[in-house]
Design a protein around this nucleic acid. Structure first.
Length: 608
RNA sequence: GCGCCUGUAGCUCAACUGGAUAGAGCAGCAGCCUUCUAAGCUGCCGGUUGUGGGUUCGAUUCCCACCGGGCGUACCA
């Protein structure tokens, strides 16, 4: 049950009666919100002020009082109070809280209801180039895309994920060149994945570097030119190169496996660029036939989002550029591939919505693409670019290795796991030395903790900031044990879980027959309130594709749980009934932390 | 030039999309362990929300101008 929605629905009939324009009622209903300040209650309604104005300058306080008086009888809210310029302060009845908390205990989804009208989403994310290791640039797309997938599915939507692989690009030229000139035949036979990875790195090493800071070779680099020729031959259908491409592909896909496994990311499909390659001429023909595309300067272009193709130099300065779908030399572009992809996805899965979790820098590309795809015949599909900011180093410059190259994702994760393990071991030793309780852990359990903590830290850091802004990557900050971090949540989880071991309590029984919830202390009430807000957080996160609303919820939950845990004894509670009630609260905190982290793709451990 | 994003405490970030006295964490200061895991908790200090206008009962949020930062601007993806 979504408590906020529930309360809003109480006001709806009253507002419908009062508001002159029925179309405005949902806006007013939406002005019931969580209280900004807990001293003012649990929720607050802010619609009296604007409503008073519409009603011809009545006094807001009077309007507020009238609404309160007309509120239907219910067992949810205490008598609302009117304060300040006309705020209506709402306090949920404690008895209702207690009952509602008991109810979510038997719900596997902890109060989150399936949406009334499930949508079908196709989500495009991650999109690595095969034959090339994943690097830091793929991190955000992969993590955010995976989190959104989990969140939308949790709400009951159908989500189809499709990894738009770069499997037809210049990186294959590098492999083809390497295979032809530098391969170790026995090594390839024994382990093609490893040998191809070696060849890729080896050939990249043969490129002349522009300077030490850049990973790019100059255009006139002889090795690079040969690689490009190999790519061109592949695209032209050269039998030898096509055969080699087919030979390489399974190994290339295999190279991606470990990193996705490690990130706990599963993507349903992987229709890459190569899959769409045969469809590209048809796309261009169709666009020309429908008179959407035109020939400009030897290339075939589609108009910008405003439907304009700038022709003169003057226009080009003012207008957004068109998008090229066939270059002067006859080659197609990624816009062409994206159009073919839209067509295929629309025809195959008939989705309501297509999401593209892609770097904010490609905003213009998607703006143009979506506008023309609508004209092309897909106006009923909701297209959404889900942009995100760049990852910056602590120097505020694009995140790179110390030597300036792009950092491989596996190395980044290794570093996070290593740093996490060092911190953990140090803390573990200190805790033990000062006589505190620490769990006895096998080396395997410890290794698992390090992995869970390290990967979790990277993901949580990425997801906890607002999606659209750039974020500064810092191992120290993400692995901090205090503050809004994965480590903090994971530790809190382990701590609360330990109560059941300590008290030899089988907490699984709470899911079948939860005890009555007794709320006496302020900390218990505040925690109960927070336990019930999970649906609000999940629904808000899904509505705007903002995972950080879930980390925000987690943080609020964790703080409420801390206060409760410090001020209320659980195992030594004054009465058996209170002990049961508090055990249930602790169990729910644990389940909520685990579930919320799971929606973000982050794991927990039972002991740490 | 045009367009998009961005500017909040010393640092890293929030602020539920227009609501009440702008909140957290770190850093700094002062406290809490004969233990339900102290990787924890409590309190204090810290702000002209880049600047100046406007819209209105009310602006960090919306509009305009300016300043600073980032990114994008047709044959790479």
């Amino acid at each position: 049950m979504n408590l906020l929605k529930h309360i809003r629905s109480l006001f709806e009939p009253v507002l419908a009666e009062l508001a002159p324009d029925p179309a405005k009622v949902p806006d007013f209903v939406g002005m019931v919100k969580p209280a900004a300040n807990a001293e003012n209650g649990d929720y607050q309604a802010n619609f009296a002020m604007p409503l008073a104005k519409i009603l011809g300058g009545r006094k807001p306080q009077e309007v507020a009082k009238e609404i309160v008086a007309k509120l239907p009888p219910n067992d949810i809210l205490e008598e609302p109070t009117v304060a300040g310029p006309g705020f209506i302060n709402l306090r949920v009845k404690t008895a209702f809280l207690a009952k509602a908390v008991q109810q979510i205990a038997i719900d596997a989804k902890l109060g989150v209801e399936a949406v009334a009208k499930p949508k079908t989403f196709v989500i495009d994310y991650s999109g690595p180039n095969v034959a090339k290791p994943l690097h830091v640039g793929h991190l955000r797309s992969t993590i955010i895309g995976d989190a959104l997938t989990r969140i939308l599915r949790f709400l009951g939507h159908t989500v189809i994920t499709d990894n738009h692989l770069g499997d037809w690009g210049t990186q294959f030229g590098i492999l083809l060149f390497g295979y032809k000139h530098h391969r170790d035949a026995t090594a390839f036979e024994a382990d093609p994945v490893r040998e191809l990875a070696r060849l890729y790195v080896h050939v990249r090493g043969l490129f002349k570097k522009k300077d030490d800071e850049e990973d790019e070779a100059p255009i006139d680099d002889p090795v690079k030119q040969e690689c490009q020729e190999e790519t061109a031959k592949l695209h032209a259908g050269d039998p030898e190169n096509v055969a080699l491409w087919k030979l390489f592909m399974p190994a290339c896909l295999e190279m991606l496996r470990p990193i996705y496994d490690r990130l706990d990311v599963k993507i349903d499909h992987a229709f890459g660029e190569s899959f769409y390659n045969p469809m590209l001429p048809g796309v261009v023909d169709e666009m020309l036939a429908k008179r959407i595309a035109s020939v400009s300067k030897g290339a075939v272009v589609i108009p910008n989002a405003k439907g304009v193709i700038p022709w003169t130099d003057e226009e080009m300065k003012k207008e957004e550029p068109p998008a090229i779908i066939r270059k002067r030399d006859g080659a197609f572009t990624y816009t062409t591939t994206d159009l073919a992809t839209i067509k295929y996805r629309a025809e195959t899965w008939n989705p309501t919505t297509m999401l593209y979790v892609v770097d904010a820098r490609q905003a213009l590309h998607f703006k143009t693409l979506f506008a023309q795809a609508r004209r092309w015949g897909y106006e009923s599909v909701e297209f959404q670019h889900i942009p995100f900011g760049s990852i910056l180093g602590e120097d505020k410059k694009p995140f790179q290795t110390r030597r300036g190259g792009t950092l491989e994702l596996s190395a980044l994760l290794d570093e996070a796991v290593t740093k996490g393990s060092e911190k953990y071991e140090q803390s573990y030793a200190e805790r033990k030395a000062s006589g505190r309780k620490v769990p006895d852990l096998t080396p395997e359990e410890k290794a698992d903790i390090f992995e869970v903590v390290g990967i979790g830290a990277v993901k949580y850091a990425d997801l906890s900031g607002s999606r659209t802004s750039d974020y500064v990557f810092s191992y120290d900050k993400m692995l901090a044990t205090d503050g809004n971090t994965a480590t903090y949540m994971q530790y809190a989880y382990a701590r609360y879980r330990s109560i059941f071991r300590e008290g030899e309590v089988d907490e699984t029984r709470f899911q079948i027959s939860p005890p009555a919830v007794i709320i006496t202390e302020a900390a218990e009430r505040a925690l109960a309130m927070q336990l019930l807000r999970f649906p609000e957080a999940v629904e808000a996160a899904a509505a705007d594709y903002l995972p950080h609303l879930i980390t925000g919820y987690l943080w609020d939950l964790a703080k409420a749980a801390s206060v409760f845990y410090e001020s209320c004894q659980v195992l030594k509670a004054p009465t058996p009934e209170l002990k049961e009630s508090r055990l249930l609260l602790v169990d729910l905190v644990g389940r909520l932390i685990r579930q919320a982290l799971d929606l973000l793709g982050i794991r927990t451990v039972e002991r740490m």
